[in-house]
C-alpha cells in the first residue's frame, strides 16, 4: 500500500507548514535588531526580557488569565448539569435548548463584542470586565457541554440507576458515581475552554476600556505603536506555555481524544 516514504513526506511537509512559523517567531524574538527579521539580526535576550517590563502586558495577562479561568469555571458550572440533563433525561424542548447553548459557535465573534458593548455596557452600565466575562463564558459553554456530554455518553447510565436503587440519592449518585467517571472529560473541557478564551480575539476587539484589555488585544494595540521583536518574544512565550499545557494534558488525560 502507501509507501512509508510517502507517508513521511506528507506528514513532514504538513507539519513544516503548520509548525514552522512558530520556530520563526521564536527566533525573530531573539533578534538583537530593532524590528522583526528572520534570520535574526544578531542574538540577544533583550526582547524576551522586555516582555516582562511592559506594564500593560502584565495587566492584560492577568485579565486574560482571570477570564480564562473563571469564565471556564462558570461555563462548567452551567454546562455540566446541562450536559448531564441532555444525556440522561428526555427534557421538553431538548433540541431547542441544545441549539441555544450551541449558538455562540456560529455567531461571528466581532458581532458579539459589539452587541455586548452596545446593549449591556453602554445602557446597563455593565463594566467592560463583566461583559467580557459574560461573553467568554457563553463562548466556552458549547465546548464544555459537548466535551462533557461525550464523556457522559461513554458512561453507562445503569450504574447510577443501580446506585439509586440501592438507596443513594440522585445527587449522591451524581457526585459519587458520575462525577468521578467523567472527571477527565471535565478537565479536558476546562483546558479547551481555557485555551479558547485565552486566545480569543474578535469578541474582545470592541470590549476594551481604560486599563481593561485582554492580552491578545493588548498585543495588537502594542503593535499599533511598534513592531519591535518583543511581540514575537511574547508570542513565543505564550506558545511555549500552550505547549506545556497541552503536553501535560496529553500525558495525563489523552487530551486529543476530546478535541
Amino acid at each position: 500500500m502507501y509507501s512509508k516514504w510517502t507517508t513521511r513526506l506528507i506528514i513532514g511537509l504538513t507539519l513544516t507548514f503548520l509548525i514552522g512559523p512558530f520556530f520563526i517567531i521564536i527566533l525573530a524574538g531573539l533578534s538583537d535588531g530593532e524590528f522583526m527579521t528572520f534570520p535574526p539580526d544578531g542574538i540577544s535576550l533583550r526582547w524576551y526580557a522586555k516582555v516582562f517590563t511592559v506594564e500593560s502586558f502584565r495587566d492584560s495577562f492577568k485579565l486574560s488569565m482571570f477570564l480564562a479561568i473563571f469564565g471556564t469555571i462558570a461555563a462548567l458550572i452551567l454546562g455540566v448539569p446541562a450536559a448531564y440533563a441532555i444525556s440522561r433525561y428526555k427534557i421538553p424542548y431538548g433540541e431547542t435548548i441544545k441549539t441555544i447553548v450551541a449558538a455562540p459557535i456560529i455567531v461571528p465573534g466581532i458581532i458579539v463584542g459589539l452587541a455586548l458593548l452596545r446593549y449591556l455596557v453602554v445602557p446597563l452600565n455593565f463594566t467592560v470586565t463583566l461583559a467580557l466575562f459574560m461573553a467568554h463564558t457563553a463562548l466556552i459553554l458549547p465546548y464544555a457541554v459537548r466535551v462533557v456530554s461525550s464523556s457522559m455518553n461513554n458512561l453507562r447510565s445503569d450504574m447510577e440507576e443501580a446506585a439509586v436503587l440501592l438507596g443513594c440519592s440522585r445527587l449522591g449518585a451524581f457526585t459519587r458515581v458520575v462525577l468521578p467517571n467523567i472527571q477527565s472529560g471535565v478537565l479536558a473541557a476546562f483546558i479547551l475552554g481555557f485555551v479558547t478564551s485565552f486566545n480569543q480575539v474578535p469578541v474582545s476587539l470592541f470590549l476594551s476600556g481604560p486599563g481593561v484589555r485582554t492580552l491578545p488585544i493588548d498585543m495588537l494595540s502594542y503593535m499599533e505603536i511598534t513592531y519591535d521583536p518583543s511581540v514575537a518574544a511574547l508570542s513565543a512565550l505564550l506558545a511555549l506555555l500552550s505547549v506545556v499545557i497541552v503536553f501535560m494534558a496529553e500525558k495525563f488525560l489523552g487530551f486529543s481524544r476530546y478535541v
Partner: peptide, 9 residues
Amino acid sequence: LPLMISPVA
C-alpha cells in the same frame, strides 16, 4: 498543537 496557540502569534 497550533490550535492551542494565539492566532496573533
